[in-house]
């Protein structure tokens, strides 16, 4: 039995009086690769932000690594690439390496400045995402896909155990998408990192993930995806998910 690292119980939330999530449940187990899908406005982003404690539920219970979210303090175990992560200031005057290094230290302290950053770790992460050659470039001088990789690198360098990605592939070309998915597979299968990815490309997702979470009618349904599905099985599963 795999350990449950995210547990959501009877979660209800609305930005104003209109609830958009009602009595929702979700369990994420270690090693899962979950595709989170649903139409625009179905609260995918909202659900992730609730799990990350950026929004407060109206009622319900959220546990991260068996700790109540209010008491949770191991945030370095969690990585997040938000839906608008790539809207950062692209003329920010920092190199790829500086940006990645910058996410290593989070506490104010006089000694930070003299502490040796973990160069080996930074180099390794840049190699994983394939940006070693660009480490001294300004982030604004990279292509959109390369910038996305920097954002992933700065999450990876902190050794997260689970990463939430909210539509990380919008605006990324087909080949770069394929590379990205292969890379995610490596993170998931070889490095054992649990992944939750929001995407509208459900066909692509089904080839990658072991579970699909679908939000419909303010509730979330979790479906296992067998890796040996043929195309007919997939269509059946899709029909089941979308209820058509």
């Amino acid at each position: 039995m795999k350990e449950t690292i995210v547990k959501v119980r009877n979660l209800t939330f609305g930005y104003d009086k209109n609830t958009i999530l009602e009595n929702t449940n979700l369990e994420i187990k270690r090693g899962d690769y979950i595709g989170l899908v649903g139409p625009n406005g179905s609260a995918k982003t909202t659900l992730i932000r609730l799990i990350l404690g950026l929004l407060e539920p109206d009622s319900g219970h959220i546990e991260l690594f068996s700790q109540h979210i209010k008491k949770f303090n191991q945030w370095d175990k969690i990585g997040y690439i938000s839906q608008n992560a790539r809207e950062f200031n692209s003329s920010f005057p920092a190199t790829v390496e500086e940006i990645v290094e910058g996410s290593l230290v989070s506490r104010p302290g006089f000694l930070n400045l003299f502490a040796r950053p973990n160069r080996k770790k930074i180099r390794e992460v840049l190699r994983i995402v394939g940006l070693e050659k660009h480490k001294n470039k300004l982030i604004g001088n990279l292509s959109g896909g390369q910038q996305q990789k920097v954002l992933i690198a700065r999450v990876l360098v902190r050794n997260p155990e689970i990463i939430f990605m909210d539509e990380p592939l919008v605006g990324i070309d087909f080949n770069a998408q394929k590379t990205f998915y292969n890379f995610m597979k490596i993170l998931n299968r070889e490095l054992g990192i649990t992944l939750v990815m929001v995407s509208h490309d459900i066909f692509m997702l089904m080839d990658q993930v072991n579970k699909i979470a679908f939000i419909r009618n303010k509730k979330l349904q979790l479906h296992e995806v067998d890796s040996k599905l043929d195309s007919l099985d997939k269509r059946k599963l899709l029909e089941k998910i979308y209820g058509v």
Binding site: G102, V105, S106, R107, F110, N112
Partner: peptide, 29 residues
């Protein structure tokens, strides 16, 4: 001296305030 102390967190916040918050940077303080 204060800037030396805050340099790294400020860098983090300036680039991306939200991920700084998730990473445990005491953004408000």
């Amino acid at each position: 001296v204060s800037i030396l102390i805050l340099y790294k967190p400020l860098f983090y916040i300036s680039f991306d305030e939200e991920s700084a918050r998730i990473a445990g940077v005491p953004v408000k303080q």
